[in-house]
Structures are given as C-alpha cells and as structure tokens.
C-alpha cells in the first residue's frame, strides 16, 4: 500500500482542523498552517489508527509536513 498526499489530507480533514486542506502546502509544517497543538496530536492519533502504526514522541520531528508524513508512513509500512 502506497500512501499518498491525498490519504494524509483525508486524515487531516477527519481531525476537523480549521481551514481547507486543499489549500494546505505539502512542504510547510502543519503547525504553521493553522493546525494547533491539540489538533496535531489528534492528527497523529488518527494516522496511527488508520495506518496501524506507532509514531513515537521521538519521531515527531519527522512528521511535521504532509510530504514528510507521507514519506514516514511509507517507510514504516515498507
């Protein structure tokens, strides 16, 4: 299964974050695009549940942008 940007945007939308996910830039940290500190932990939880992975606290710097999340999850699912 190859995870795409669209898959990640669906999860972000599911987290009910403010703003339009279509407008989000893929290479800018989500927290710089209106996703606050509570929304972001919800996004991480939904990613963990949806893709059946764990994102440990020490990996959070690897999942800041949509592009980096795609890369991280694809690596995890190997």
């Amino acid at each position: 299964m190859n995870i795409t940007v669209e898959n990640i945007k669906e999860v972000i939308m599911e987290a009910d974050v403010l703003g339009d996910t279509d407008e989000m830039k893929n290479d800018i940290p989500l927290t710089d695009q209106g996703v606050d500190s509570l929304d972001i932990v919800n996004v991480y939880l939904l990613l963990e549940e949806k893709f059946d992975i764990k994102i440990p606290d020490e990996d959070l710097n690897l999942v800041q942008t949509i592009d980096s999340i795609v890369e991280y999850i694809n690596k995890k699912l190997g």
Binding site: S37, L38, V41, N42, Y44, L45, E49, D57
Partner: peptide
C-alpha cells in the same frame, strides 16, 4: 504529557 493523555482519553 498532553499527547499521551489525549490518546488515552480518545481511545
């Protein structure tokens, strides 16, 4: 640990 407590309550 806000993330851990959130994950606990949400799940």
């Amino acid at each position: 640990n806000g993330r851990a407590v959130f994950n606990f309550t949400a799940t």
